[in-house]
Design a protein around this nucleic acid. Structure first.
Lengths: 338, 338
DNA sequence: CTGAAAGCGCTAACAC
DNA sequence: GTGTTAGCGCTTTCAG
């Protein structure tokens, strides 16, 4: 591919014999430009292979059409669903997400946020409510709408679209307790890198106490993000350390599925001897045998609502910060039948 | 958040009492600027909360640091792995991916490519080798390096990093035939929207013929992208229509897992009565019980190599188009034990 | 309906 | 080590 310079509006204008201004007008509204001129311009564009340069327009208009988005990982069906909902909502309004990955690390988030802000996005969406002090300052001082998602921060920066991860865990404890299970374990990460995972663990502990049950079966299954492999390994450890466990709540469906497979290999009946619950309502939970009880956080809905919030905020239609609370829902399935 | 105008280099310069040029220099190399001045500038930046405006620099330098990337779907662990490998490789060289989703539709790809090209990326990476004529023209005329991935197009636009999807299917047929299975079915999409899926089906048919076997057990399981649910449904249909089938190859591991669960619910022993193979080497295939035979396309490696190709091409280090061929590998697991 | 002038925020190139 | 000038490609504004 020859790296020759692409044609500009100047080139089109010269070829057609009009001013660049007329080309500019013809390429956008099309109205208020003579029909013949317009057609001539269209042809010149085709012949020269002209492609509009939005970097120049962005500078002139002081609008980029970007919405910066940070997510912990791209390889996560829940966050992917949120991004899908968000992208679709934004596209309808001519906005484009500018995506970055933090790898579950708030230090990296800080670097990323600064990088993204340089691109002059019109709004920024971040995952979670935990940030480094400088990151908070950057977000607050950016002069654009900020949306924190997947969480309900105590002290929000601006807008919020999220849910209580602790509550989600509580709902599962309530459900398992209602089916008569008392010796319940929790499998999660063994660091606080994934703050949503940590919140679920804390919610588990609090809920167990409320039921008068001991929350002493906590398995740390490695550094987040955890997946199936870690779930299987954690279940192996649990079966050794506390073989009388009756039920287990996992930080995600992937971990839960890994735990389930380990039960299958060990000949332990699910849900007869062991109930299992996950989080996230991944497709696998509905399909696997036995199907897995889980909590649906409505990941795509988070994205859809975030898009709506961003659009309203950019349009200046919101006076005070929007706090949009999602209510997760328990999906009871075969793995916890009582 | 007050939408006041963010400070510019002008503002910093005025505050410190130097010219904008000095600020510009201090903010980049830092060299060739007096140490005290540099420190004063750093402080002013902090106080005013200045964030560098790369849209202006991009216009001036005629370099955006963007690499446009189109993938069929964000919610696909294989493509996500490619994007991860790509992103990491690019970041080291100060490049940022600008991601767009085609939803497996070459018409949407055309729209997307034009949109992305307006942002003046320095290179563009597309998934697959099938494009609308205008899309091809846009890519060819963009004057930037183009990389087609996840395929080996007969007539590449520019660079290629991919593998033969037909070969991948052939490898599975060879493996199943070697274990003595002759009545082999294929589950895939029932449209050609996903051209890589279509290639795998064609490869299956050709390979069956080469073995002197009939390729008449083709199940169309709906419109791509297919997942677990469709796999389960397709298996139900297959068990009705051709209950003597001995083995099945699925267009992806997710479909294969769905098919497996249907066998479990129907009491059909895998691999005893039915062998199953998938594609993609998703994590689930290694973990589920029985584990699933699959083909690993080295998704992340595709991304890593693509990044290297992009970087070399931008640097002008490649004379002729790079064709980087990946060799997929069969992973034999429990689901096809003979 | 069309054009001329000016400028968005930054930096290469050239002084000094 | 620092400043001045000019201009990247587009579009707002004001004239005609």
């Amino acid at each position: 591919m020859p790296p020759r310079k692409p044609p500009t509006m100047q080139d089109i204008a010269r070829k057609v014999g009009v001013s660049p201004m007329t080309v500019s007008r013809a390429l956008r509204d099309g109205t208020s430009v003579n029909a013949q001129t317009r057609e001539a311009i269209r042809q010149a564009v085709d012949q020269l292979g002209y492609v509009f340069d939005s970097t120049a327009a962005n500078l002139r208009n002081q609008r980029t059409g970007f919405v910066a988005v940070t997510i912990p990982s791209i390889n996560n069906a829940n966050f992917a669903a949120t991004v899908r909902g968000l992208s679709e909502g934004l596209r309808e309004h001519g906005l484009q997400p500018l995506l970055g990955y933090t790898d579950y690390d708030i230090e990296q988030e800080e670097v990323l946020v600064e990088q993204l802000l340089r691109r002059r996005p019109e709004a920024i969406v971040v995952t979670g409510g935990q940030h480094t002090p400088r990151c908070r300052r950057l977000l607050q001082g950016a002069g654009i709408p900020v949306v924190e998602t997947w969480d309900l921060p105590e002290d929000p920066i601006d807008h919020v679209v999220g849910f209580s991860n602790a509550d989600a865990a509580r709902m599962l404890v309530d459900h398992l307790a209602a089916t008569g299970r008392t010796r319940v374990a929790f499998i999660g990460g063994d660091t606080d890198r994934d703050s949503r995972g940590t919140d679920r663990r804390e919610g588990f502990i609090a809920a167990m106490k409320r039921h008068g049950l001991e929350a002493n079966r906590l398995i740390g299954a490695g550094m987040p993000p955890l997946s199936m492999r870690e779930g299987a390994m954690a279940m192996r450890i649990l079966l050794q350390q506390a073989p009388d466990t009756e039920a287990i709540i996992c930080v995600s469906d992937l971990v839960a599925f890994g735990a389930l497979t380990e039960c299958q290999r060990a000949g332990i009946d699910v849900p007869g001897q062991m109930a299992i619950a996950g989080f996230g309502n991944y497709e696998i939970s509905a399909i696997c045998v036995p199907s897995l009880t889980t909590v649906d956080p409505f990941s795509e809905e988070i994205g859809t609502r975030t898009a709506a919030t961003v659009i309203a905020a950019i349009a200046g239609e919101v006076g005070s910060p929007v706090i949009s609370r999602i209510e997760p829902q328990v999906c009871v399935r075969e793995s916890s039948e009582g």
